[in-house]
Design a protein around this nucleic acid. Structure first.
Lengths: 215, 215
DNA sequence: TCTTGGGTTGCAGTGTACGCAATAATGCAG
DNA sequence: CTGCATTATTGCGTACACTGCAACCCAAGA
């Protein structure tokens, strides 16, 4: 009986970080789900915080305890994904060529994208249709660029403030993501995202000068 | 006399588009000047439209007839610059390699930047210190990327929606600008912006894979 | 001079977001 | 299981950006 109680406590602690946080997570998901539905129905600008709050059964004021702005409901996951990238990059190979590590890190993210295809497509439709969300999205991408720049500079033993190559590499890598993602979205996620990214990275590594008009 | 009158009219029309528009231009410049001063003094967020309007001696409501948002006071010139780039790109060489034309177009913009160095530095300080302005800035850069993507696609005879290379090239070119500009700003515009850009373009053309850790 | 169109202004209103204080729910220790 | 501490929720008030509308004003042109 004693052992059983201990076991219960362990399960309780590992699976659930307390009823409190479980409830918070649930509320957060509810807001996200309800908000995305409303955005699709009424448009982003046509949906007020008040409406979202009513649909999620919370007070309007409470919304801002979960998301710093309306835009972040659509984009919240990105910041989380950045953390994973940064971790992957920090484990990168000091002194070696940066490209294999960079490629691996971004292909890893691409795998995520493909598994969450439906969800991603929903969100991207809202992003593309709403300037303010697009702006916030770019802002988040800028933090990615900063993080990647720092990582590449560390690998190459360069100072990112004095040498422009780390930022150029990071910016080009993110351009690869944007181009691949855009291509992937135009065919509604039917094509293979990783192969797009690989193709882009190949071009960046070996030189964009080789691209020329097809016969 | 008759000829002189005609000449006067021509001068009048070319130099001054009427007293009305002249006054508009002056008011616009006043708002810009006054607003930038206030931003530097109180910070962007610490400066209200009401304050700007008072300092520029206009009604708060009138501000929005000149600028669609507070952010655009800092960034208004960019949209104009884009027009010049697009024009330069449309004159680009169909069927040839895109890089010489791309390089020329961006070096042209860089020349502008250097002549307006002081003004530019003021504005960039505000951009870097203010998230909302930075976001708007990125949004404008995105329109640049779209425009460059289209131009490159046209040159290469590719469909930008189906082939990801035009957008990759455009994105990489803009990353070159960002990296160069950042480097240029860290030394307060002392270094040569065009040479930064040239160096970036060289790397992009011949391949980023060659960048490696210095001995 | 008179008309007309554009520019300016004031007013009222909407919506996001924040600070603050009161209240409710939860976790924890006795 | 009960009181205490912690944290979440809520309501209220406020600041500010931005918009639509209608009145007004003034330069431009007939």
């Amino acid at each position: 009986m004693h052992r059983l109680q201990q076991y219960d406590i362990l399960v309780y602690m590992s699976q659930t970080p307390g009823l409190r946080d479980r409830k918070k997570q649930r509320t957060r998901r509810t807001i996200e789900r309800v908000a995305l539905d409303l955005f699709e129905e009424n448009g982003f600008d046509g949906t007020t915080i008040e409406l979202i709050a009513a649909a999620a059964d919370i007070a309007p004021r409470t919304f801002f305890h979960y998301f710093p702005s309306k835009e972040d409901v659509v984009l919240a996951d990105y910041a989380t994904r950045l953390d994973r990238i940064v971790v992957a990059l920090e484990a990168g190979p000091i002194g070696e060529a940066p490209w294999p590590a960079l490629r691996a890190a971004f292909l890893d993210v691409a795998a995520d994208y493909e598994t969450e295809r439906g969800e991603l497509l929903r969100r991207f439709r809202i992003i593309e249709a709403t300037p303010s969300v697009a702006a916030r999205n770019l802002q988040i991408q800028a933090t990615w660029e900063d993080a990647v720049t720092e990582a590449v500079a560390r690998w190459l033993g360069l100072d990112a403030a004095r040498d422009l190559r780390p930022r150029l590499i990071a910016g080009a890598a993110l351009a690869a993501i944007r181009a691949s993602l855009r291509r992937w979205l135009t065919d509604h996620g039917q094509s293979r995202l990783p192969s797009h990214i690989s193709a882009c990275f190949d071009l960046l590594e070996t030189g964009l000068g080789q691209v020329s008009r097809p016969k």
